[in-house]
Structure formats: C-alpha cells, structure tokens
Design a protein around this nucleic acid. Structure first.
Lengths: 219, 219
DNA sequence: AATAATTTTTAGGCAAGTCTAAAAATATAT
DNA sequence: ATATATTTTTAGACTTGCCTAAAAATTATT
C-alpha cells in the first residue's frame, strides 16, 4: 500500500498530537499542525479512513489504526535518522536540520534507511534527544522529566527539548547547553518559578518558559 | 523561483535528450522519457516556457534557456552526488542506486548538497562514470570513446557505461568489469563486430551490443 | 504536388489536494 | 434549557498534472 507525501504528513501530525493528548485527535488540531484549513483536513481524514490508516467518526476526532501508527512511526524513524546524519556527518547544527529532514523523511527505500541506520551506528536518539524507533517500530522510552519539575539539590543531564524552534536552540547553544550537559539545581524561586543552576561550573538563572522546554533525567 | 518535482523531471529529460541530439527536443522524445502522453507534455511545455525555463515554438521542439539549463544541471549534480553517497557509504551496488537517487535529487537544500559534496571528497564522477557538475554547473568532460570504436592492439580503461540498466551492470559485475578496469583490445571480428579483449589477464569476447555500451579512454 | 503517415496541439475531463462560504453538530454560557 | 459560540462538515470551485479523442500541422511517400 502506497501513501502520498501529503498523507504521510497528516499521519505524522496525527501521531505527534496523539502523543501529548490521550483522547481522539481533533480536526482543528490537525489543521493547525499541517497548516491547512479544517475543511481540507476533513477531506483528507475521509481518505485516510478509506485506506484504513485511521478510525474516523464524524465530529468525534480520529485515532490511528495499527497500520497508521506503524506508517507514522516509520516516518518519524526516517526523520530522526536523517537528522543524525545531517548533524554527525554534514556539519549541520541542531537548529538547521528540521526543514531538510522534513523532505528526506519521505524518501521511499527500505534498504536506504536501514543502511543509513547502520552507517550511523544505530543511534537511539536524534540531535534533540528524541528517541529513534528501530526498524520494527519499537521506541526506547526514557524516564525523562521536565526541568521545571526538577528538585533543588539534585543533579541532572539534559536529554531533550520540547520546543525545538531555531530561536530556542540558539539560546541553548549560547549557554553551551546540549544533550548530555550536566545541570545542578541550586535554587527555585517561589514567586516566578525561575530556577538557579550550576552548569559548566557557572551559575545561571532560567525563567519558567525556559525550564518548561527542557527535558532532563536524574544523573 | 521554485520548480515542482514534475517540472524538474521534465527539465532533466529535456537536458538529457539534448545532450545526444543537437536540434530542438521533440515532444514525443520527452513523452517517452518522462513516461507520459504527448498531450501532457505539450501542457507542461507551455508552463515551462511561461517560467522562462525553455524556449518553445509550437510544432518545433524545445530548447532549454540558460536558467533551464542551470536548473537541469543542478538536478543532475544532485542525482550523481547521491549515487556516489549510496555506493561509497551505504553499500549500494551500482545497479541499485538509480531509483533512490531519482527521489533524492529533488531535495531542496543548497547547504545539504554542498556539505554532501565535501563529505564525499568532491567526487568528479558518479558510479557509472558520468561526470558530476560542480556547484557552478561546470562539467568536466573527458575524451572518452565507445569501446566498439577502440583500436586493436591498444589498451584502455573503462570510464563509463551508456545503458546503465540493472541487467547490463550485472553483466559487467559478473565479469569483474568496473570503472578503472584495464581493457586490452586483442582482436575484432569483421563479420559481427565482436571483439576479443584481455581483461584481468583473461581473454574474453564481447558482442557488438555490449561493446556499444561501454565508454573507455586511452590508457 | 498531392496524398498518406506521423507528430503535435487543442478541447474537454478526471483525481488529488486545497480553498471559501454556508450548514450542521457539538460545546459553552447564561 | 435555551441561546450563543465554537468546531466540524458539506458544497462548490480552483490548480496541477494527467488522460482520451479529435483537429491541425508537419514530414514522408509516391
């Protein structure tokens, strides 16, 4: 069964939205993600349902079928592997990879992606710390927490980001924060939730919007 | 100016056809190359002419404009660089690369392709011996001849193939003939133009259809 | 030079994916 | 519980790229 580029983008959008919200995915949420009008989304949802990639009940949002989920995960796998390639081999920085990976993820060739996986030494995480599904669609989940929920006195390592917009990644670069960076929590301000850390032996303060965007795990 | 995937395929087809025939490229020749009906080609030619990528006069074939030529060459460059990547880094054999490169050649990112070029050490030829245009569209042409026109008594190196179909490439693999292989011409049969060579210290005979498909240059 | 064969173009239509505007269903607020 | 607001769907239309069938132009043949 072949999927068009557009169908793949819809599946990926639905997959990502369903990651953060339990319930069925709404038409509007998809419209926002794929940058189209709700009416266009409705059209596409009918097509995806016909192809048995989603379950769709009028006015009730959608869910991926198993086939749809596997298709979406395969696209995510390709996207993240290409991101690793771009950063590790082609000198891209982590804020430059997204748009190119969006294109590369639609290349259809199982041999290509499996050879790429091997060439990159079977990476488990992309440059933003997101896990790379293996060729069977298995995702290795880590027990990561959001930095804003970290405990004063503990030390963590940075394992990912939520918002991977270029602006935010540049902020992290400026302060030399990347995957694996050690972050020691020194203080947390009750008033505005801003937190004080020791990073690379230097003290720094981050506001709530920042700490809410960084994933860490206990060291 | 942005070109669609389909437009790019037409430009590439026109470019390749115009390589082997001086005159304007005919609608039918393009139709054959892009696997579409002549009427569809006419439609597309109007669009390409509107975009100033070709010069098109009804009933008289087409020619690429300078802009069209540069666009086509850029696609050829990307196609051939990706082929090198697939063979050199991802263990593809030279008969497996074409279909995947057909997809990869449409990825739009100047940084990607220039970094890839550097990563591959600025290759000048693809795995079939075809020259890779540089980033300015310059093509390094070699003084290659067709093996069927080689002279008895001389020694040549294989520098390319014409028909790069999987079948033909497999024939060459079977006889351990690849780019750089030395070919000594021992004899040529007047009757059927078949030729006898010494390759890897072994004598072998090739028929006209074979020798007509191999490019060599004088050693 | 006239006719036949071929090539190319036009005309009209179809599927994918998008849109706007309006209608229908659902959710929210009084 | 009714009215209002929001979300979602339908209806109709547009663009891209393709098709078939028929007409027009070119090329080949006698």
């Amino acid at each position: 069964m072949l999927t068009t580029l557009t169908e793949e983008n819809y599946l990926k959008a639905i997959y990502h939205i369903s990651q953060s919200s339990k319930a069925g995915v709404s038409t509007n949420a998809i419209a926002k993600k794929v940058d189209a009008k709700a009416s266009s989304v409705t059209d596409m949802l009918k097509k995806l349902a016909d192809k048995d990639l989603i379950t769709y009940i009028k006015y009730k949002g959608v869910n991926l079928t198993e086939r749809g989920r596997l298709t979406a995960i395969d696209i995510v796998r390709k996207h993240r592997l290409w991101e690793v390639f771009l950063v590790d081999k082609l000198n891209f920085s982590w804020d430059e990879v997204h748009d190119v990976a969006e294109q590369l993820e639609h290349i259809k060739s199982p041999k290509l992606i499996n050879e790429l996986d091997e060439f990159l030494d079977f990476p488990t995480h992309d440059p933003h710390g997101d896990p790379i599904p293996d060729k069977h669609g298995q995702i290795q989940r880590t027990e990561k927490i959001i930095l804003s929920k970290a405990m004063v006195g503990m030390t963590y390592t940075c394992v990912g980001v939520i918002d991977s917009s270029s602006n935010f990644l540049k902020y992290l670069d400026k302060h030399q924060i990347g995957l694996g960076t050690e972050i020691q929590v020194v203080d947390k301000e009750d008033f505005d939730q801003s937190m004080t850390f020791i990073i690379h032996n230097k003290t720094m303060v981050m506001s709530k919007p920042i700490t809410n965007n960084i994933y860490v795990k206990k060291l």
